[in-house]
């Protein structure tokens, strides 16, 4: 039928138009970065490294591999963990520009190899060693390599984390522990200092002094972060709609792959950690998803029925016209 043929032509041109301005153009605009399946063996770091650094990186990640093969003793690890807890404690203060995060779920959200690498040399593990030309000991957590250095000790601490600091983790906890010390999430009411406390204004003056004090503390923390990182990390409230899922995934896995030279460290998330962080980003950045999925079919059903009835009406109206 002629009318269907015309419809077909319109559809073909429309789809071609869509293909050109969406998938094709975006594919050309953004460089394609392959993910590594959240395996942290340093292969990407070695590939990216300058000639002088290649050998050091190879040796570093080879050591990590050796330690990973050791059998860790969680009980023995508890004693070494006390070293970690010296910095990573509740209410820890900013040190060298950043506040050490809670390790309550470190065993659940971080990859084992990454944790080993992190204890050996935090700057190397997080792929920000380019920031420390005079030695990676200058990293705020750099001194850990002097405290826990024997391969077996490292294996033990990691075994301890995986045994005792694991357990069920909520999306919000995963975000707070892995990203929250640097990134605020204002739609989730999170600052770099954690949840925004509920405060009240003074009825007589109309001023909320506690809120002002809190704002000042946040501003101080942010200033320190900006000094440490060269820029204030962006608020991640709605980042899930501002970047593609693939970008976020590969960026979080290895920030240098997408933004060479960036100050953002690799966070070493494993599959569970990544899933939970994404769940939180979706909760604050795309909260309508569940309702959308619930309402969509109903609305479409309505319009299918509407169209079917309209078709019958049209047939009745045009009866005898041809």
């Amino acid at each position: 039928m002629k009318e269907l043929k015309i419809f077909g032509i319109v559809v073909v041109f429309t789809l071609a138009l869509y293909w050109g301005v969406e998938p094709f153009a975006h594919g050309q605009m953004h460089k394609h970065v392959e993910g590594h399946g959240l395996v942290y063996d340093g292969s990407a770091d070695i590939e990216e490294a300058s000639k002088e650094k290649k050998e050091a990186k190879k040796a570093f990640w080879a050591d990590v591999k050796k330690i990973a093969a050791l059998k860790g003793d969680a009980t023995a690890g508890e004693a070494s963990y006390m070293m970690c807890a010296g910095c990573h404690m509740d209410g820890a203060a900013n040190m060298g520009g950043v506040t050490p995060p809670s390790l309550d779920h470190a065993g659940a959200i971080y990859d084992k190899n990454f944790l080993i690498a992190l204890i050996k040399d935090p700057a190397m593990a997080t792929n920000v060693d380019h920031k420390y030309p005079n030695g990676t000991m200058a990293h705020p957590m750099g001194s850990v390599s002097a405290m826990v250095s024997a391969p077996q000790d490292i294996a033990n601490v990691v075994a301890y984390l995986q045994a005792k600091k694991a357990g069920e983790v909520t999306p919000k906890e995963a975000f707070t522990e892995a990203c929250g010390r640097c990134h605020a999430n204002r739609y989730g009411k999170l600052t770099q200092l954690g949840e925004v406390p509920k405060t009240k204004s003074n009825i007589k003056t109309g001023q909320d002094i506690d809120a002002l004090k809190y704002a000042q503390k946040v501003a101080t923390e942010q200033a320190a972060l900006a000094d440490y990182l060269g820029t204030l990390p962006p608020d991640l409230s709605i980042i899930i709609r501002a970047r593609s899922e693939h970008f976020l995934h590969t960026f979080i896995e290895n920030p240098q792959s997408q933004l060479a030279g960036t100050a953002m460290p690799r966070t070493g998330l494993n599959h569970e950690g990544m899933e939970k962080v994404f769940a939180y980003l979706e909760e604050t950045g795309d909260p309508s998803k569940p309702l959308r999925e619930e309402t969509g079919p109903k609305v479409l059903l309505f319009f299918f029925i509407f169209t079917a009835l309209a078709f019958l009406w049209k047939k009745a109206m045009w009866k005898g016209h041809h």
């Binding site: 319009f303 509407f306 169209t307 309209a310 078709f311 049209k314 009745a316 045009w318 016209h321």
Partner: peptide
């Protein structure tokens, strides 16, 4: 008569439209 066809075409269009919306 003309309107009945318009409304049918609109129905088809709304299906596409709300598919895109959701």
């Amino acid at each position: 008569v003309f309107l009945s066809k318009d409304i049918f075409v609109m129905g088809v269009y709304f299906i596409l439209f709300f598919y895109l919306v959701f």
